[in-house]
Nucleic acid binder design. Structure first.
Lengths: 343, 343
DNA sequence: TAAAACTATGCAATCGTTCCCGAAGTGCAT
DNA sequence: ATGCACTTCGGGAACGATTGCATAGTTTTA
């Protein structure tokens, strides 16, 4: 606080020692009732608030958690951060957010930076270009609390919160198949990302269930996670000029989904008449799209909350933790016009 | 850092005192060349990083700035936060974000919370329901650095970054008038907000310039800033059942703009045939809307950057500042189909 | 040659808090 | 009356870093 009182001020004002004041404030049993009352009342009067910085130094805990995401200006992540903040705030932690912009190098320096700030734990969603996860492994081996959410580093055996990506992509694909589409293309993010392969997996499973062929030329990866407009454009270009053009597209990344729509239109295709579309996104305006978008929505807010709860529990755990949770949360398929039944 | 070295460790390892090590690290001239080299090399070797918490305690500076916004999951604010982070990160500050959800009470506790965390300054965009700005006035009078952005507390004489709201709303309105609309309604946020009255002002100016009447029944305020679906629905309901129904609507708040579209459609009106629409929003998918939305875009990222630069300059200023900047940044009108010329 | 000046380093206080340890005071049993 | 336990409180170290001042050693200067 500004011009705030310290324990020393209170001690001086009351003619007590700092130790006594500290103990009275912390409700220690070895302080006399009147003294305690005196201190408490005075502290209340001057609106005493312990200095969190001094506490951090003493306790060797910063009461802050570091967050690593690709960008905040993203539907999924801004909602997840909302969830993260809500839990952290109520637990007395503050949140330091860093953005990778899908760069592995940036991610590495962000982690360094967060560590140098002595965060008590890390909440991370790796970037699309991250391949080296040894820093996380190293930290985790040393007992440093890390929780991955959404984009997890599979090899690191720690807490993870992910959407049920396989089922989500399966549902999305099955929905298109049910609507009569057989040639369904799949546009996804970087191969490095587990979410990409899981979502691809779900897509393949659905095709196989309905005895449809999995055609490699129908599968496109955007290695920069859609951060570069050109890579999405290129993928669409290649797909839509195929001899056997796909009848439907599914996109399995938030940014790619929203990027696709104007490109498809600019190419002169009508959705869903020329090509149907459905994709993963947490945009809350997908209903207002032209056409209204069929989307697969992840519970971003809840995922942020769950990850934060787990992280804080890990941080505050007295004994080291060796049992790690791997939470799988359900997605929500919202069917709209963009994936309309084939005439 | 994890298992990180302290100055004390270095001192012990090198048989020096902590003062010498500290001075060597800070390049003090009064340290012998070899000693300095020795310390520097050892520090490099063990990857020494000064403990920011200890530094904060010593310097009485937390190197953190508090941010008060209504919500992160909002196009404008997530982009602004992106700008804030970018500057803060490079200046060695970290950012603590708090959300008001448009509640004045929540805002007050957020500010309290940030102060108790000893932030070095505040970046604030007040909530839609905030009327009491005395806490800000009090802090500012005490010399505490505050920069307002977007939603400013007019009465507090400090740095402010705002979009040119009057001109923005004027441009938007003039554009509709130029397209042949004369009965233009205005849906805006809370009356408490200066941005609301400025945008209303720009709207009125445009009407007056073209000799069109300013009709009070065409002006609707959403006191909760569009956080409540019902208030937007109610406003639209009242407008669209007016004997002389408006031909066009302008919305001057990001959230209200995106909320309006599905409601208007659900009411059975086609845009722009039954009613044209244009609004303030920083959504980056407004092009994909049905119909593509005519929008007024604020340079959110830059505004975040400017505000943060100003704040940090104020924080780090040696002498107290009495000259406050009031930056006005230009908006961008993007014309699309939703405001199409009246047939 | 002795004093002055300068160099290079160490000591200790400080920031705000906690906590170990010691000590004074009281009450009670022996 | 003496010892012991218990209650209640204070002293001071510690967390990690900076910094004014002291000090020891060396060099310069009168």
């Amino acid at each position: 606080m500004f011009g705030s009182y310290t324990i020393k001020d209170i001690a001086k004002a009351l003619g007590l020692s700092t130790s006594t004041v500290s103990r009275a404030l912390n409700g220690s049993y070895e302080i006399g009732a009147e003294t305690k009352k005196l201190v408490l009342e005075y502290a209340e009067k001057v609106n005493y608030r312990p200095n969190p910085i001094a506490l951090s130094l003493k306790e060797q805990k910063s009461h802050s958690i570091g967050v690593v995401v690709c960008e905040v200006a993203n539907n999924y992540f801004s909602q997840a951060i909302n969830g993260i903040e809500s839990i952290a705030y109520n637990s007395g932690y503050h949140v330091i957010i860093t953005q990778t912009h899908e760069s592995a190098a940036r991610e590495a320096t962000n982690v360094q930076h967060l560590l140098s700030r002595h965060v008590d734990g890390l909440l991370v969603s790796v970037s699309a270009s991250t391949t080296d996860i040894t820093p996380y492994q190293y930290l985790h081996d040393k007992g440093f609390p890390i929780v991955f959410f959404d984009r997890v580093a599979q090899a690191v055996n720690t807490h993870k919160i992910t959407a049920n990506n396989i089922k989500g992509a399966f549902d999305l694909t099955e929905h298109l198949i049910a609507n009569g589409f057989t040639r369904i293309a799949h546009i996804t993010s970087s191969r490095n990302l587990l979410i990409s392969s899981e979502r691809l997996e779900g897509y393949k499973e659905a095709l196989q269930k309905y005895n449809l062929p999995v055609q490699p030329e129908y599968i496109k990866h955007c290695e920069n996670g859609g951060m570069i407009q050109d890579e999405v454009e290129m993928a669409l270009q290649e797909l839509m000029t195929l001899p056997e053009r796909p009848q439907a597209l599914i996109s399995t990344s938030d940014r790619i989904t929203t990027t696709c729509i104007p490109i498809i239109k600019r190419m002169g295709f009508k959705i869903p008449d020329d090509v149907a579309f459905a994709g993963f996104t947490n945009s809350d305006v997908s209903e207002s799209f032209d056409p209204p978008l069929t989307v697969l929505r992840q519970p971003a807010f809840q995922m942020g909350q769950m990850a934060t709860e787990l992280l804080i529990k890990t941080i505050e755990s007295k004994r080291p933790i060796y049992e790690y949770q791997n939470e799988l949360v359900d997605t929500e398929l919202i069917v709209r016009k963009s994936s309309l039944k084939l005439a």
